[in-house]
């Protein structure tokens, strides 16, 4: 049978490109322009002010703190979700009773709305809440914390809730990767006398490269764009302790500081691109090498 290179002609992509152009490319280009203006609600004219909004962002303690929090959160969730997701995948990939049941249970939190998760976890993490009560009752009272009110740990608490919610999602991707590894590799390794750890680092980990890459990237981008978790759990508080870039954007827009809000949004887009694109490139390279 003769195979042609393309089933459809290129012009069939025009509707999609038009939609993409009108609803994504256009507004994105516009937003770069507006980020260079003093656009605020109620002002009759919008004036070009150069990089003033960016100077405000990087000169403000609160906004730089929000940027720091965003990165801190991203690092914690990337590590947490992937380690947890991989461990869960390895666990539910072994033959055991109630295997399907466990898979569903671990996956379930990610189908629940983050707002609902927030409503559930706020009382759980209250200083007099279930978690602290539990820790006290099992003799671990020294671990009791003001999880969502202590400014030193609030971001870690929020990241913890997110890791709890999304580990199951990453587990599913790892599980798909694990199930794609032929058993014969492990059998051969076993015959050669490899230990379980050697099998993991010699077979499982390299063979999981595509799943690992997609999980890393998804959790990294999700981490940098975080909004709903701090919004639902603390609304950026106490004070500005858990502010992140996306929450600041929301707040600036809500208060009519549209130019500054747009500049913050552009900053976030730049961060996501500058970090994700090289990461993607490096990972793909590794994938090819493997």
């Amino acid at each position: 049978m003769r195979r042609t290179g393309h089933i459809y002609t290129y012009w069939l992509t025009i509707p999609a490109l038009l939609l993409f152009g009108i609803f994504f490319v256009g507004p994105s280009v516009y937003s770069i322009y507006y980020s260079l203006t003093d656009w605020v609600i109620g002002k009759d004219s919008v004036s070009f002010i150069g990089l003033e909004n960016y100077r405000t962002i990087f000169g403000s303690d609160e906004l730089t703190h929000a940027i720091y929090n965003t990165f801190l959160y991203a690092v914690i969730v990337v590590i947490g979700k992937n380690v947890n997701g991989l461990l869960l995948a390895l666990a539910v990939n072994t033959k055991m009773r109630l295997q399907g049941y466990f898979r569903v249970i671990f996956f379930l939190p990610c189908v629940i709305s983050t707002i609902i998760i927030g409503l559930v976890f706020v009382p759980v993490l209250h200083p007099n809440g279930i978690l602290n009560e539990f820790l006290g009752n099992i003799g671990l009272g020294f671990l009791q914390q003001g999880w969502l009110v202590d400014t030193k740990i609030v971001m870690v608490s929020i990241a913890g809730v997110s890791i709890w919610q999304w580990s199951g999602y990453h587990m599913v991707i790892y599980l798909a990767g694990l199930q794609g590894i032929p058993d014969s590799y492990y059998e051969a390794a076993k015959i050669d006398g490899a230990t379980a750890l050697q099998s993991f680092f010699g077979i499982t980990f390299p063979m999981l490269a595509p799943a690992f890459n997609i999980n890393m990237l998804l959790s990294l981008i999700g981490g940098l764009k975080v909004f709903s978790e701090p919004y639902a759990l603390t609304n950026g508080g106490p004070g500005n302790a858990s502010q992140v870039i996306a929450l600041e954007v929301f707040s600036k827009f809500g208060r009519g500081q549209w130019g500054l809000g747009t500049a913050l949004n552009v900053t976030l887009a730049i961060f996501v691109s500058v970090i994700s694109i090289p990461v993607l490139y490096l990972m793909r390279k590794r994938e090819v090498e493997e």
């Binding site: 202590d150 400014t151 106490p238 004070g239 500005n240 302790a241 208060r255």
Partner: peptide, 18 residues
């Protein structure tokens, strides 16, 4: 002007940040 920033600083005070 909007007073939200001031109100946030009050929380900072109770959090011991300011």
């Amino acid at each position: 002007v909007d007073l939200n920033d001031l109100w946030v600083y009050f929380q900072d005070m109770f959090a011991g940040v300011k």
